[in-house]
Design a protein around this nucleic acid. Sequence first.
RNA 1: GGAGCGGGACGGAUCGUCGCUGCGGGCCGCAAGGCCCGGGGAGGAAAGUCCGGGCUCCGCAGGGCAGGACGCUGGAUAACAUCCAGGAGGGGCGACCCUCGGACAGCGCCACAGAAAGCAAACCGCCGCGCAAGCGGUAAGGGUGAAACGGCGGUGUAAGAGACCGCCAGAUGUCGCAGCGAUGCGGCAUGCUCGGCAUACCCCGUUCGGAGCAAGACCAAAUAGGGAAGGGGCCGGCCCGGCCGUACCUUCCGGGUAGGUUGCUUGAGGGCGCGGGCAACCGCGCUCCUAGAGGAAUGACGAUCGGCGCGCGUUCGCGCGUUACAAAACCCGGCUUACAGGCCCGCUCUCGUC
RNA 2: CGGGAUGUGGCUCAGCUUGGUAGAGCACAGCGUUCGGGACGCUGGGGCCGCGCGUUCAAAUCGCGCCAUCCCGA
Length: 146
Amino acid sequence: MERGLPLRSAAGENAQRLAWPRENRILRRAEYTACYEGGRRFHTEHFIVFVRFGRGESPAPARLGAAVSRKVGKAVLRNRIKRLLREFFRHYVRRIPDGTDIVVVAKKQAGEAALRQADVDRQLGAALRRAERDARHEGRQAPARS
RNA sequence: GGAGCGGGACGGAUCGUCGCUGCGGGCCGCAAGGCCCGGGGAGGAAAGUCCGGGCUCCGCAGGGCAGGACGCUGGAUAACAUCCAGGAGGGGCGACCCUCGGACAGCGCCACAGAAAGCAAACCGCCGCGCAAGCGGUAAGGGUGAAACGGCGGUGUAAGAGACCGCCAGAUGUCGCAGCGAUGCGGCAUGCUCGGCAUACCCCGUUCGGAGCAAGACCAAAUAGGGAAGGGGCCGGCCCGGCCGUACCUUCCGGGUAGGUUGCUUGAGGGCGCGGGCAACCGCGCUCCUAGAGGAAUGACGAUCGGCGCGCGUUCGCGCGUUACAAAACCCGGCUUACAGGCCCGCUCUCGUC
RNA sequence: CGGGAUGUGGCUCAGCUUGGUAGAGCACAGCGUUCGGGACGCUGGGGCCGCGCGUUCAAAUCGCGCCAUCCCGA
């Protein structure tokens, strides 16, 4: 709440719920590509995070997309990493502005390390704070691009 | 006690908080949908995708060739490369394990060594004749090799040889008995003893149509159900044969969709009992319902108790570490591979004690 | 879901069809040449042929099962 991240609702009115329903997911390939090309990129120890503010549509909840390729590991491990990413998003979605798309790509090292939820929270939280700060620094409010 | 063989079943438990999903019920809403409650929610291999089927479409799924797969016998089964029972050969002290058509149908291969590697031959030898060179007779012995034309003993001979005899091993033919059969046991005859490799081609026998749930069906939306070029199309690759017929297919240009429902989980299904069968398995009766996602749900955090290992301790207990492999994607039957731990049953060998 | 290819010295590849000797180029080491280096010449070392089992007298080669990497089609 401090640190400048505004407290917004995830989807609809219920701001108290910590959920991750369908409209909060990035599904289409074109949306992923838009994030890769139009978003800011941040590297953490185990992930590459793309953040794109201000998607522009009127009902625009924040969304998350996870990309975990087969280089990372076998199916069980890949599923677990995706769930850890969703769990982070579920907890932090209230601090993310509406219309923000986040795509997280797992690096190969993510499979080799025994990740815990705390590790994911720390890395992605730091990346999001930097994205928010850079966006304010760049000019006006965060959703400046169109 | 130690070492081992075969088979079977399991593969953490409970609670709290926050989430996901589909089912049932209730409430709100014109609707899309939302909220609340209840009870479900990964595996023995879900894996690799190596076989076999079901199901769906190709109108029907025909004949031949090509190609693939399989390969002792009998049975089980929807089917199989699986399973059960048996046979033969090989390995192991043993429990037990492994392998399986055909080499007088053809085409081939057998390096090096060796005289000679497959049908006939003779390097050193041995024997006879000859002064010698050499000629002839031999295949017992030597040596080479993965493999060398049966083995042992005798008769015989110039020296030798199944040349002949006895026993043994094998081959071929034939007969009898047992068995559904693979095959086994036994008798007789022939001195026949002329190899191996088909997991290289091949031959014989059996078997196989193609695709695959992104199969397929329905609804909705969208576009001019557009233009150009080529090909008649379909029935696994080819041929025959058949069927359909102005549709269909391919490529390019320019556009438009790529949303929802269904298929989707009750099935060659699981458990128990009885009966048949050596068994695999089958039949009958009762009973149970046990994931259905869709860029893809079963997770995160915390607590307690377990299992195993190590240390302190050695009654209790305490601390630390560890708790595997691996994620359903239409569904079954198998195979193969991965796996922390422990559990049960039967059996073998060996050591010690009584 | 369906189909295909490749694993051989440090690197890039031959050899596999038709089984017996693993070879080439670059790289490496030594020597020569040069005042020295490069280039060049000569000599040399280096391989469990991805892993396991099988067939065979004998397997990089043939058969089966795994592992890894890469590429197509829907």
